[in-house]
């Protein structure tokens, strides 16, 4: 038996390339944090809940600053969906406020969140 020879740099790059070719789709799935065929319904529900949260926040009386903790969203308890509303002065346009809503679900390593922002003025255009 002969002891194995070290591979050349070219061969090592070739192995890395082949491995990347095989594993790249899984990397992409990891990067979007979802497997579309299984989790698209959860995403759809979360996005609708996000819009509802935003519309609710916009129909509140005008405030310059407001922040709520993450609270469970009724109707989506099976998903474990929690959402929050933040209202903060816009960093560049002092007359406007930024309304930001976020929803979050999932357990720690696979936590997903969606956020939506809306620029609001005190007076209507």
């Amino acid at each position: 038996m002969s002891d194995p020879a070290p591979r050349s740099m070219f061969e090592k790059l070739l192995y890395v390339g082949i491995a990347t070719f095989f594993l790249w789709p899984f990397v992409q799935l990891w990067s979007i944090k979802a497997i579309p065929v299984f989790e698209s319904d959860a995403h759809l529900r979360a996005s609708v809940a996000l819009e509802n949260l935003m519309e609710g926040a916009l129909s509140r009386p005008f405030e310059r600053s407001f922040s709520s903790p993450f609270e469970a969203i009724p109707g989506c308890e099976d998903l474990g969906l929690v959402g929050r509303v933040e209202i903060l002065p816009h960093p560049e346009f002092p007359a406007n406020v930024l309304v930001r809503t976020q929803v979050r679900w999932g357990v720690f390593p696979l936590t997903k969140n969606l956020s939506l922002e809306y620029l609001r003025a005190r007076t209507r255009p």
């Binding site: 509802n52 519309e55 129909s59």
Partner: peptide, 9 residues
């Protein structure tokens, strides 16, 4: 299946 929409008028 329940659908709920909130609308700001």
């Amino acid at each position: 299946r329940e659908f709920i929409r909130v609308i700001q008028l």
